[in-house]
């Protein structure tokens, strides 16, 4: 199974977007994805916050998802309908949680060159991000081995349910 191409408008956010910004701790008593989606990224500045909709691709700077291990963070992004996160770098725990949940994550140093509010196309199989309007292409190495398989399967749960093994 190969991952489908995804496309949507980019919304740029800055460096060090922490998990408290993605989903503030006061909502963590819930595992209800609707509630988490409703409060996802609500600590962003009002202008950016109003552009966080289903179908967007979040484009971030360094260290996206730093802070707590709350899986509610990638869960909230997924539940909000965010297609993927492209970042210059991800914080470690967020990265593994995102992959485990099947939230597409692309780590690419050129993330900061991707323009804001532009339609972008993500091709995971080819390791390519394309901006159709300007024909600009950025390449990234696909996730290697086991981690790539997890993301392709749609996360660790889906991987195990499909008969995948941790061996």
């Amino acid at each position: 199974m190969k991952m489908k191409k995804l496309s949507g408008p980019s919304v740029r956010v800055g460096d060090h977007i922490d998990t408290d910004t993605i989903i503030p701790a006061r909502y963590l008593s819930s595992t209800d994805s609707k509630l988490l989606a409703a409060h996802c990224l609500e600590l962003l500045d009002a202008k950016t916050r109003d552009r966080i909709h289903a179908g967007i691709v979040l484009v971030a700077g360094s260290n996206f998802g730093c802070g707590s291990s709350r899986e509610h963070a990638p869960l909230a992004l997924k539940a909000r309908g965010i297609l993927a996160v492209v970042a210059k770098s991800f914080a470690r725990i967020f990265f593994r949680n995102g992959i485990n949940l099947g939230l597409p994550l692309i780590e690419i140093p050129a993330a900061i060159e991707i323009p804001d509010g532009e339609e972008i196309e993500l091709d995971f199989a080819a390791g390519k991000i394309e901006i159709p309007a300007t024909k600009k292409v950025f390449t990234f190495p696909p996730l290697p081995g086991f981690v790539g398989e997890l993301l392709e399967a749609g996360g660790l749960l889906a991987y195990l349910k499909a008969g995948g093994k941790l061996e």
Binding site: S69, E71, I93, N97, G155, L166
Partner: peptide, 27 residues
């Protein structure tokens, strides 16, 4: 492994202790 980012605290005892997510813990 702990579903809490500050699980790394136990490194003080010479353990390899690392924060993970709820899926990791459940699996």
């Amino acid at each position: 492994i702990g579903a809490d980012s500050h699980t790394c605290t136990y490194g003080a005892l010479g353990a390899f202790a690392s924060g993970v997510g709820s899926t990791d813990f459940a699996v």
